[in-house]
């Protein structure tokens, strides 16, 4: 990351930077993530699990339909650097619902912490539908 106080990496007569030290961090500014960012990160991470689907389409949040290819709907509640996630998703039938949802919980807990820097404490999952498979895996011959 570029540090304005030193004029760039290794700049001039200034003392060497302490990338993780308290002195330098105060000059680097702050990075603030909105809830929406965490929600989209979590939704994308969940959708990357093969057996998980979401909802898509609709207008202004109304009339959304089950879509195995879409991202699940995630809502986040932030308290400091701790996030509580609620996710509504679809699971491929006949995959084990307990196994898939546990995988979602573990994957989100790990990856959201990695990517967003917030600690995920609790993930509530609601399975909204079970789907027979992904349309992308099928070819339709007309």
């Amino acid at each position: 990351m570029f540090d304005a106080s030193t004029g760039g990496p290794g700049g001039g007569e200034h003392p060497p930077r302490e990338p993780d030290g308290p002195a330098s961090s105060s000059h680097r500014g702050h990075l603030v993530l909105a809830e929406k960012v965490v929600e989209k990160i979590a939704a994308q991470c969940a959708s990357e699990i093969t057996e998980v689907g979401g909802t898509g389409g609709g207008f202004l949040g109304m009339g959304r339909q089950n879509d195995p290819e879409a991202r699940p709907k995630v809502s986040v509640e932030l308290t400091g650097a701790i996030a509580t996630l609620s996710i509504e998703l679809g699971v491929r039938y006949p995959a084990s619902i307990a196994r898939v949802t546990q995988q979602v919980r573990e994957e989100l807990g790990r990856r959201v912490t990695e990517l967003a820097g917030v600690q995920v404490r609790q993930i509530d999952i609601r399975v909204g539908y079970l789907h027979g498979g992904s349309p992308a895996e099928e070819r339709t011959l007309l």
Binding site: I97, T101, D124, I125, Y129, L130
Partner: peptide, 13 residues
């Protein structure tokens, strides 16, 4: 966290 599913979701599948 909790994991919930309504029974009709399973029945329909």
């Amino acid at each position: 966290g909790v994991t919930l599913m309504e029974a009709p979701v399973f029945s329909d599948a």
